[in-house]
């Protein structure tokens, strides 16, 4: 792939990703309102929010560490956007295919949360410090099941002789469901459940929004942020929602509909991309919107326990079943 070609693709993915991200954020808010029996904001509400934030004064508090406070939103935004470039879009390979794999995406997904924690600590507000501590506690709890789910799939692929097994394009091109036995099916389902359980925490959404907790610690990590910096965190959240949903889709439901329907060529590609967007939407709707309106915020210790015990055990059981499946099926 030539450099210029990659650049064009990157711009296309970023502009398209931004538009889709805003649309899904608007849909998320609208559907959450409908589920609560409200009318809800218009679909373009997230765009209006960002426009307004860009017009506001950008305050850097006197107690803050200015460079770190200002750098954190950029770091979060850039990491989220970079992760978007590593995602396979339906039938298409990731733009930066070959320059990084699943492990890199997992790290890129961790950076916005870390940047928020850094920014919170640098803002000099006690609320933000409490929020940062909670963010770190939550990350330490959910990263393990997340890593197990990702590694379990990559390992099973490698035992089937498909490689490079950590490449997201390879994983998306070879759905595991068809190549494992019944034990593997159960194992994959458990890993799928664990990954879906991690999704809302990765995005700091209710019931796992303890780092932000508006009614409790006044916005937590974001308490001192305003104007452009807050808008950048908002954008990072919009993009990150797409990335984590895209990761779930690539790992567990990478199927297209063009091939079964027998549509080839460019039409099939477009159909598959549209189907990919539908899958993204379903993942966001199930793992973020419905859970967000169904539960109240958990306490810090409840969140940590939820991820350290049941979710970790479920993902470990899933991994174990995948190993047993390999033994039974003989690799």
């Amino acid at each position: 792939m030539s450099g210029l070609n990659a650049l064009w693709q990157a711009i296309l993915v970023l502009v398209g990703g931004g538009a889709i991200g805003f649309l899904y954020k608007g849909l998320d808010r609208k559907l959450a309102a409908r589920l609560q029996g409200r009318i809800g904001p218009p679909l373009r509400q997230p765009v209006l929010d960002v426009v307004k934030l860009l017009l506001k004064e950008n305050v850097v508090p006197r107690t803050a560490v200015p460079w770190l406070f200002q750098a954190a939103p950029f770091l979060a935004f850039v990491a989220a956007v970079t992760a978007l470039l590593y995602l396979p879009v339906g039938p298409l390979s990731p733009v930066l295919h070959g320059y990084g794999d699943l492990v890199l995406v997992l790290y890129l997904l961790a950076i916005p949360a870390l940047a928020m924690a850094l920014g919170g600590l640098a803002s000099g507000s006690p609320y933000a410090v409490v929020g940062a501590q909670r963010e770190i506690v939550m990350m330490m709890s959910y990263e393990f099941p997340l890593a197990i789910a990702a590694v379990g799939i990559a390992w099973r692929l490698s035992t089937l002789g498909i490689g490079p097994s950590f490449s997201l394009a390879t994983i998306a091109a070879n759905p595991l469901w068809g190549s494992v036995g019944p034990l593997g099916w159960i194992g994959l389902s458990l890993l799928f459940a664990a990954l879906l359980a991690v999704t809302p925490a990765e995005l700091s959404k209710i019931p796992f929004d303890i780092p932000e907790a508006e009614t409790e610690i006044a916005g937590g990590l974001l308490v001192e942020y305003s104007g452009v910096n807050l808008a950048l965190f908002y954008l990072a959240d919009v993009i990150k929602t797409l990335v984590i949903a895209g990761l779930v889709v690539a790992l567990f439901i990478p199927y297209g509909i063009a091939a079964p329907l027998g549509i080839a060529g460019i039409g099939g590609k477009i159909l598959d991309i549209l189907f990919f967007l539908v899958k993204l939407f379903v993942v966001i709707f199930v793992a973020v919107t419905v859970i967000r309106v169904s539960f109240a915020r958990l306490k810090v210790d409840q969140v940590a326990r939820f991820y350290l015990l049941p979710t970790t055990l479920i993902s470990l059981a899933g991994l174990l079943l995948l190993v047993l499946d390999k033994v039974v099926m003989g690799g």
Partner: peptide, 16 residues
């Protein structure tokens, strides 16, 4: 009453 339909949101910090 649902003020969110006008885009009005209650925030937790005066900075926002």
């Amino acid at each position: 009453y649902d003020v969110e339909r006008f885009g009005i949101k209650l925030v937790g910090s005066p900075r926002h």
